[in-house]
Write a protein that binds this DNA or RNA. Sequence first.
DNA 1: AGGCAGGTGGCCA
DNA 2: TGGCCACCTGCC
Length: 290
Amino acid sequence: MAETWSAWQPLPASWTPTARVLRETLDGGQAFRWTLSADGLWHGVFGQHVVRLRHTARNRVEWSAPAALAKKTAPALLHYLDLDRDADALADSLPWRSDQHLARCLSEFPGLRILRQPFGETLLCFLCSATKQIVQIKQMVALLAERHGAEIAPGVFRLPTWTELAAVPEPELRKCLLGFRARYISDTAKFLANHPGWLDETEALPYAEAKARLCSLAGVGEKVADCVLLFGANKLEAFPVDVWIIRTMATRYGLENWSPAQIAHFGRVHFGPLAGLAQQFLFAYERAQR
DNA sequence: AGGCAGGTGGCCA
DNA sequence: TGGCCACCTGCC
């Protein structure tokens, strides 16, 4: 039997991303569970939610969800996309007036947002990310959902919880194309199973303390911790330093041969308390140059 | 076809 | 601190 979807409903008119900015927000490396179908619709899963998004005239965005779930989806989606917040004002507070390159990045991707993903699944996704490209990370995460998560709509699977993952033998995890990352996930799952509440407490901590705790997990170093905090806990001061940012800082800011730690320090000082937001614009721009 | 890929951790000076 | 290397394996 065909699945029933809710009627299309508009997202707030305050967000009018171009198709390109919409793609960069959903599928630019923050999240790994959005796919663009042949008919131009974005299909996404986060937490227990299943959503379709469509880009319409005048850069409006509309959403639809399986009818049975749609009532809960509305507030969850607004939160996920952080649409209660004036992202333009946030971006405007970045030091673009004194940074020509940042100004260009902002103007290239107006409306680009930092998502508010569920903390635990952000951790899971970025544990998969080491030396992998977005397509491959998406593949691993999809397999984890299909094989170890749960079906929440016909043919749509949510990611496994950490409790569920703790029950999966590492060899089974490896079958999800995880490679050496399987051990990271397995060890982290066992630790979290033995420390109930640890993840929630970590999410609630201030940035520096939360980061220190995350870095104590297997497979979580500075970069992964910063991604988890930026995309999964809305800590906008987190400034993940990956190869793209190292490249950007070298070519656009003249920081040739700086270490990741030095770049992270420069980023915090130069971009300020919203350094992570700046990072996302720089990242999008650099990737677009390819 | 074979090297490379959004890192981390361990080991050595 | 700073540098080097193993760790897995599917994809461009």
